[in-house]
Design a protein around this nucleic acid. Structure first.
Lengths: 180, 180
DNA sequence: ACCTGAACACCGTTCAAGT
DNA sequence: ACCTGAACACCGTTCAAGT
């Protein structure tokens, strides 16, 4: 709140004329994040293709607000109407794809878990491992170097795409299994 | 620090005789978490079976320290020898399974992203959606109710298992593809 | 309707002073 | 070697006072 007020060139207490407190500010930021998630894609693309686009926009939207990811992941969404709207659209896409009612949320949350974890990783420093420890971990330092050389651009992007590809492959299998 | 000192029945400043600051405390907790992750399983079980056990113990270990998940996911590990040790063991298992050098870290981090996201979800309240918003989102509230009825126990566990199953299925396909 | 400024109960960190 | 207690620069929130 202090930081926000400073950015606005105003006293901290002035904020309380507009919001109830820190919690409301976070709830509103969550709405801004939700607005950036592309749900319209479910209208124009096949389910699994749309899921890929949706997941990418989801991660990007959250990565714009690093400090809030953990808060949002663990805080119940109350008074976040536009976020609920986003969920409703995705749930409808799952159902239209033939997903069984009792497995939609389980699967959606599983996918979300990966997306939020990847959003955290996206805002992490690219160099997670010290060179100091490298001598004690030869295999780790070797594959880290090999991975960095292979991945053009941010390695966090490569991990996100790899994980997303894997989980969507697995979900195709899951859907086939569930609708035996 | 204040909370920790209070728990120890000591003044806050007394802590600085033992640790350099808050950051060192967090680094040490990270080591405690790493110690709880089962890496020995890679010695006694086939790769993908071991990966399943490892991932479960990883999530459980982190879920024990909710407040630290986001910090650990975004903070470089310096002076975390036992955490590096954990990574080294897992990397060796990937290599032994025939994983190509330049794709080990990409895949490992992808899997970790899911695990950390699931750990965040595990400490979140079980009721994420208000009943108030339910009227505006009929499909969401229907599948939420159906999911809760189907999942015996915590729904976050069901999501973790579903996601883990999907991602491991996808990784089997990925390994087969990479070693064409 | 919206701001300021003082006040309160908190933080993490430092440092002189004690034993 | 390890603690206390005061001090400092921060937090989020409340409230009386101003315009």
């Amino acid at each position: 709140m202090a930081q926000l007020a400073r950015r606005l060139g105003v006293g901290t207490s002035a904020l309380y004329n507009h919001v109830a407190g820190k919690e409301e500010v976070l709830a509103r930021v969550r709405e801004l994040v939700s607005d950036r998630i592309d749900t319209a894609v479910f209208d124009r693309a096949p389910f699994f293709d749309a899921l890929l686009i949706w997941a990418r926009s989801y991660r990007d939207a959250f990565a714009r607000h690093p400090a809030t990811i953990a808060v949002f992941a663990t805080t119940a969404l109350s008074g976040a109407a536009r976020t609920t709207e986003m969920y409703e659209r995705v749930v409808l896409a799952f159902l239209a794809a033939g997903w069984p009612d009792d497995d939609v949320m389980t699967t959606l949350v599983a996918l979300e878990n990966f997306i939020l974890g990847a959003a955290l990783d996206a805002v992490a420093p690219d160099e997670m491992f010290d060179l100091a420890d490298a001598t004690d971990a030869p295999a780790l330092s070797r594959v880290t170097a090999a991975g960095r050389a292979a991945a053009h651009g941010r390695s966090s992007d490569a991990s996100f795409e790899a994980g997303l590809d894997a989980i969507l492959t697995g979900l195709r299998v899951r859907l086939a299994r569930l609708s035996h």
